[in-house]
Design a protein around this nucleic acid. Structure first.
Length: 320
DNA sequence: AACTAGTCCAACCGCTGTCAA
DNA sequence: TTTGACAGCGGTTGGACTAGT
């Protein structure tokens, strides 16, 4: 047998919370805490609400240090960059924005930010031209690269996300062979050694976040899957997973955008990273954002979009 | 002033993984 | 081992508000 029923749904109040209910809930939680049991809480607090509803009200509204109001440009960039990487994992995104709730971010994305980005796409198409790229390397396109412009390091110093679930929503866009710019650079092959060199050349100062795939045990036959690690230094196992394709964004005082990818098997090692200088933005990037927005609901977790025989993917967001 | 369309956001709904009985 | 409640999450909805006509 399972547990006892959670609550009598016929006798719970729905709809907007009154100030009286708010203060009851707040007082109770401040006094006794949640006790790890939301279902029992409303009864104890004298509320005719479902525990679920109490939890939501507390987390999204009554909890201390909740930030309401306009999002800053920096918060915009954080949301954009994480959305491009992990998709609509609002709770994870919210965890990186102290004081913001997942619901808040979700609403903000759906009502404002998404439109803002779409607007940027329109503007960029009609007004801007790609700036010349000084590097001797190729210039790949990368979704959202322009949004990282002047973006400071955003992770809280004590931030932690030890483990993420597979990140694959980014892959179809970052790695799509239909992307002509990427395709043009698809001869690149990235190896662990090249990344080590890169890391040595651009040593991490504070934190880094790494998204990617390559666990051999996962859904795709080539072992493609995703993992994210985060910390002050790169772990050995992270390095050992890096093969084939990589992309990196660093941001801070001096934005560096790095991308490296390639077809995998049998190809010779062409350890190439491409750097995109600070302030660069390309119309193509915004096109990718638009495409991501349009397709985000469809392509998340669809590893099949990637040619299993061609690539191992590793996308790395690296900042210093 | 009245109506309509668009926007915002709090709250609900339903799904999933976890865990207690 | 099975069953079903719980916690948490993302998607969606509907009412309040605002801007435009």
């Amino acid at each position: 047998m399972g547990r006892a029923p959670c609550c009598d749904k016929a006798n719970v109040k729905k709809g907007p919370w009154s100030t009286e209910e708010d203060s009851k809930l707040k007082d109770y939680i401040e006094k006794y805490g949640t006790g790890g049991n939301w279902i029992a809480l409303p009864q104890k607090a004298g509320l005719k609400r479902c525990g679920k509803s109490c939890r939501l009200r507390w987390l999204n509204y009554l909890r201390p240090n909740i930030k309401h109001g306009d999002f800053t440009d920096e918060e915009d960039r954080v949301i954009c960059s994480l959305f491009s990487s992990i998709g609509s994992r609002w709770s994870i995104i919210a965890a990186q924005l102290p004081g913001r709730t997942d619901n808040d971010i979700k609403n903000y994305w759906n009502t404002k930010l998404k439109k803002k980005l779409m607007g940027m796409t329109m503007t960029s198409q009609s007004q801007r031209k790609p700036p010349p790229f000084p590097s001797t390397h190729h210039t790949p396109s990368f979704p959202l690269a322009s949004l990282y412009k002047e973006c400071p390091t955003y992770y809280p110093p004590t931030g932690s996300f030890a483990a993420f679930e597979p990140m694959s929503s980014v892959q179809p866009l970052l790695l799509n062979n239909d992307n002509p710019t990427l395709a043009a650079n698809s001869s690149f092959v990235h190896t662990p050694e090249s990344l080590v060199s890169y890391m040595q050349y651009y040593p991490a100062k504070e934190n880094f976040i790494m998204f990617g795939s390559g666990e051999p045990s996962c859904s795709s036959s080539d072992g493609s899957s995703s993992h994210i690690s985060y910390g002050r230094e790169m772990k050995q196992e992270d390095m050992s997973n890096i093969q084939g394709f990589g992309a990196s964004v660093g941001y801070g005082e001096d934005l560096k955008f790095m991308l490296c990818h390639g077809t995998n098997t049998g190809g010779e090692d062409v350890n190439q990273w491409t750097e995109k200088p600070s302030g660069c933005s390309f119309d193509k990037d915004l096109e990718d954002v638009k495409r991501l927005i349009n397709s985000s609901s469809n392509n998340c977790c669809n590893d099949n979009i990637i040619d299993e025989n061609k690539t191992q993917e590793k996308v790395m967001y690296y900042y210093y």
